[in-house]
Design a protein around this nucleic acid. Structure first.
Lengths: 115, 115
DNA sequence: TTCATTCATAACCAAATGGTTATATATTTA
DNA sequence: TAAATATATAACCATTTGGTTATGAATGAA
């Protein structure tokens, strides 16, 4: 997964409506009408959100007659999650190291360990 | 972490420059000049990117004299990563279930298991 | 065949985003 | 004190984003 794909995936995840759709898809595939139901939004708006998710590779479309079924694709999300997990490890490590240092040098905000 | 915070975190992560800064911060805190160095971009543009990261809670600012040191904050990233991990589990599960079903019913693209 | 349903596309709009240049502020150095 | 450095802010601009209404195309049902 290159940088531009990460842009698309994180960008797609940065909207509550789209995350809601993905959450709904965790229950299994759904057609577009069903996906749209929870939102007070025009049908073309829904269509646009789905296109964003599709461009990011987070969903796939399967046409069955006049209905389009949507299913979520784990791969790109896992990649994006991997990016976070990898770096968060280092950030967490540094934070904990500073905490430990402060602990050792008793530079606590509540001295003597009392409240 | 509420929906709006997730918007901010994923939105902040959806730009390669900002991800690059966070990657750099995995090596430890840095001042803004150092963070800006790899990018062919004006100083105010860098300043804006940092503000986006800050609003998302992904970084913190520590002023030491005229220099502002930046350090990454693991918490919000971990939360966002948790969102992905949680749902990706279901999406992956469904995908694998379909794969297994197709396997069992021998509806493979390469019949008889041969190429 | 005709009507209803499902979905996509075009055209438009306001607001947000990501960049710029110019300028200001605070701090350090000479 | 004067100059240099580090950073922020204001004002501006083009593009993208997230919504709308209007319309069209494909499919299914009556």
């Amino acid at each position: 997964m290159n940088e531009q794909n990460l842009d698309l995936v994180f960008g797609a995840l940065s909207d509550a409506t789209r995350r809601g759709m993905l959450a709904q898809l965790s229950q299994g595939e759904a057609n577009i009408t069903a996906l749209a139901a929870p939102y007070d939004m025009s049908q073309p708006a829904i269509s646009k959100h789905l296109r964003v998710l599709e461009r990011a590779g987070l969903i796939e479309r399967i046409k069955r007659g006049r209905e389009h079924y949507i299913k979520a694709n784990a791969g790109p999300a896992e990649q994006a999650g991997g990016w976070i997990t990898y770096y968060a490890q280092f950030w967490r490590q540094q934070f904990d190291a500073v905490e430990a240092y402060l602990q050792e040098h008793a530079e606590k905000k509540t001295p003597e360990g009392k409240v």
